[in-house]
Each structure stands twice: as structure tokens, then as C-alpha cells.
């Protein structure tokens, strides 16, 4: 049987840590994108759901004002969310997320080329 749990955005969701399926920290929740049924734009008074968690370069926006264009904001689809508690836990590993592309790009193109950069210290036990 399904039921609903009530949460408030500021109290329970915003700024919470996002963990991937392996428990690794991904990002923190900066904003939540609202969508209507079938992914249409959200409309006042009509049914609205959370479409995605937005994680993005908000530091510059906070310092200098303005807003990040929606198309430039990395997002994590809400379908990937498995549990909402002290942290927000995803059901997918972070490698599958676009939100971490800068880190993955640097790992593959910069850190990986440094001698010893492909060594996994955790694998040594």
C-alpha cells in the first residue's frame, strides 16, 4: 500500500547532501525543478511535481547576482531518487550522472595522465 510523506523544501530538501547508490557524496541540492504532467512546464493551480534536482554553479550567482540559465544547470532526475532522509540517496551510481561531468572529465583527461594517477588507493586494502 502506498501513502504519502509530507516534506518542506527549505526544511527537508534544499542544501541537503546527495549520495549516489554506493553512498558516495555527489553534490548538494541547490534547487528543485518543477514540472507539470508529462514533463510540460509547471502551471499555477494545476498538478505539479518535482522533475529534477538542480545542482549548479550557484556560487558565482550568489556573489554577483543574476541567474544561471536553466539549460546550463546540471540536473539529477527525480526518478533516480530512492530515499529522502538526512541525505538524499540516489538509486544510480554517480558515473551515470551528468551532474559530475567536470569531475569525470578531469579524472579522465588530467589526473589519469599523471604517472600514478590511475592507481586506486582503496584497492590496496
Amino acid at each position: 500500500m502506498t501513502h504519502e510523506r509530507i516534506v518542506d523544501a527549505r526544511l527537508h530538501l534544499l542544501s541537503r547532501q546527495v549520495l549516489d547508490a554506493d553512498g558516495e557524496p555527489v553534490r548538494a541540492v541547490d534547487d528543485l525543478e518543477l514540472v507539470g504532467p508529462d514533463g510540460q512546464p509547471a502551471r499555477a493551480g494545476a498538478e505539479v511535481r518535482v522533475g529534477a534536482i538542480l545542482v549548479g554553479p550557484v556560487l558565482f550567482v550568489r556573489l554577483f547576482g543574476g541567474a544561471v540559465p536553466v539549460s546550463r544547470q546540471p540536473r539529477i532526475a527525480w526518478e533516480d531518487v530512492g530515499h529522502v532522509g538526512t541525505a538524499i540517496e540516489l538509486t544510480v551510481p554517480s558515473d551515470r550522472l551528468d551532474a559530475d561531468w567536470v569531475e569525470h572529465w578531469l579524472r579522465d583527461h588530467v589526473v589519469g595522465r599523471i604517472p600514478g594517477g590511475r592507481h586506486d588507493p582503496e584497492a590496496d586494502g
Binding site: 502506498t2 504519502e4 510523506r5 509530507i6 516534506v7 518542506d8 523544501a9 527549505r10 518535482v50 529522502v84
Partner: peptide, 8 residues
């Protein structure tokens, strides 16, 4: 604040 109902 903005209130949501999470489907469990």
C-alpha cells in the same frame, strides 16, 4: 517554504 507530498 514550499510543501511537497512524497509518494512512499
Amino acid at each position: 517554504d514550499v510543501r511537497f507530498a512524497l509518494e512512499v
